[in-house]
Simulated assay, not measured.
Amino acid sequence: MILLLPILTILAAVGSGIMAGLFFAFSSFIMTAFSRLPPEQGIAAMNSINVTILNATFGLAFFGTALLCIFLAIISFLRWTEPGSAWLLTGSLLYLIGIIAVTVAFNVPLNDALQAVSPASPEGAALWTRYLAEWVPWNHVRTIASTGSLVAFVLAYAKLGAA
């Protein structure tokens, strides 16, 4: 188990980093570009992403990292007095709360509402304005949480390696 823990920590760092890059791209330029499109085009582009992102590669990175975080959180409690345990727990909680919980509670319901609206309708235009105002700040939370998770896992790995 001691030899496996550093490997799992690296994998959690990589998964958090992949998510950080994805969320950073949306926060820094993708959503800005979409907001400059007419509402029906912005809605269509976002709906296309929301459909195509549901694939095995994304699922492995997103949910695989979540499973690793659950495991590492449990291990951090069992090894609480060992070096790096607090960083393992921090990275895990940042990922599970700041990414998984925020996605499920805020981003996915907004995505579902966007998928259900007629893009060319007045309701679609109004929802698009609300969507941008609500979805983007929650994505910023995910960007910060995933970056923090990555840093925490790197610090955990450094402590594990020093032990």
Rank of each mutant, 00 (worst) to 15 (best):
V151E: 00
N139H: 05
S16C: 07
A66T: 07
A105W: 12
S27H: 00
G59P: 09
T129Y: 02
M31N: 11
M19L: 14
A56I: 10
I70G: 05
R130L: 13
T81R: 13
T143W: 01
G42T: 11
G124V: 10
S149Y: 02
A156P: 03
I100L: 13
T143E: 05
I18W: 09
F153K: 05
G21M: 08
F26A: 06
Y131I: 03
E40R: 13
F63D: 01
H140K: 07
I49L: 13
I10N: 00
T129K: 15
I70V: 15
A152P: 08
E134H: 05
A86P: 00
L60D: 02
L155V: 12
L150F: 15
S76D: 02
A33R: 13
M46L: 08
L5H: 10
F24Y: 14
M19V: 13
V117M: 11
P83V: 09
L160R: 12
E40P: 03
F63Q: 08
G161C: 09
A116L: 11
R36T: 07
I74C: 04
L94H: 04
S76C: 04
G17T: 04
R130N: 14
S76T: 11
L5V: 12
F62G: 01
S146M: 08
A66S: 14
S118H: 05
P137S: 08
C69M: 11
